[in-house]
Design a protein around this nucleic acid. Sequence first.
DNA 1: GTCGCTGCAAAGTATTTGCATAGCC
DNA 2: GGCTATGCAAATACTTTGCAGCGAC
Lengths: 143, 143
Amino acid sequence: METRRSDEALIEALRARGHRVTPQRMLIHRALQELGRHATADEVMEAVGGRLPNLSVPTVYATLDLLGQLGVVRRISPGEGPLLYDPRADDHHHLVCSRCGRVEDVDARVETGAAVAAARRAGFAPSHAEVVVSGLCASCASS
Amino acid sequence: METRRSDEALIEALRARGHRVTPQRMLIHRALQELGRHATADEVMEAVGGRLPNLSVPTVYATLDLLGQLGVVRRISPGEGPLLYDPRADDHHHLVCSRCGRVEDVDARVETGAAVAAARRAGFAPSHAEVVVSGLCASCASS
DNA sequence: GTCGCTGCAAAGTATTTGCATAGCC
DNA sequence: GGCTATGCAAATACTTTGCAGCGAC
C-alpha cells in the first residue's frame, strides 16, 4: 500500500534526526499526501478531520514545518495569501499567479546547478533549488 | 546622473500604462533604488524619511506593488517574515535561508526556458522566471 | 473638471509564542 | 522517568480595505 510505505519513510526520517514519532505527525503527513495538492495549514487540519479530534492549529504548523525540514514536504509562500504545503518533495517547479496567488506544479527539466554552485560560493548550504515562474494564471489572464 | 535616468524610466513606464506620476511614486522608487538591497515596506518608508512627511503605509504597499507590476522592482516573499522588495529588476536569482528568512542575490546563468514553455502550455501567461535556492545562510549554518 | 491616488483609521488574517499537561522513548 | 510534543489561549505583526479629500492630467 502506498500509504504504508510513505508512513515508514516518515518514521525513519523522524528517528534519524532524533524526533519522536507521534500520531499527530503521522496523520498530518498522511492527510497532506491524501490531499495530493498544495494545501494550507487549515486545509490540512480539515483533512485530518475526526482522526485527531483535539488537533490544534499550532501543532499543524509545527508539524508541517518539521516535515519541511525533513524534506518530505515542501513549504511554498505564494506572496499572496497563506502559506502552502506541497506533498511532493521530488524535483519539480512552481508557477505562481501574481494576481490571485494560485500555485501550480510545473514538470520541466531545468539545470539549476550553476545557481546552486553560486550559492555555495556565497557561503550558503543549499538544500533545494527550484524555478519559480510568475505570471497570470489562466483565469486571471482572461479577465 | 543615475537617479535621473531611473526616474525617467519610471515616468515612462507609468504613462505607458495610464498611471499617474505622483511624488509618492517617484520618491518611493528612488528610495528603494538608493537602498540598493532587498527592503521591507517599512524600511522603504523610513528611507523616504522626511522627503514625504505624510507618507502612509498603505501607500507604500500600493506603490511597491504597482512598481512590481510595472516590472521595475521585484516582490519577494521569503516565507518567513515580511515581504521584501528588490530594487533589481534584471535577471538574477535568489537564495533564501529557510531558518532566518534572509534573502540574497545570486548571479548565475540558468536556462529557465523549459519551465517557462511548460507554464505557457499550462495556460499561464508568464512574466518572469527565477531560480530560488533554499538552504541555510552562512550564519545559520554555523550555529 | 474628472478620476485616480493618497492618507487615515481600522479590521482581518495568518502565524507564532508561552505555559501547563500528556505521552513517546 | 525525562524530555519533547501537544493543546489552549492569546498576542503579534503584517497587509489590506473603506472612505473622504487632494491633486495629476
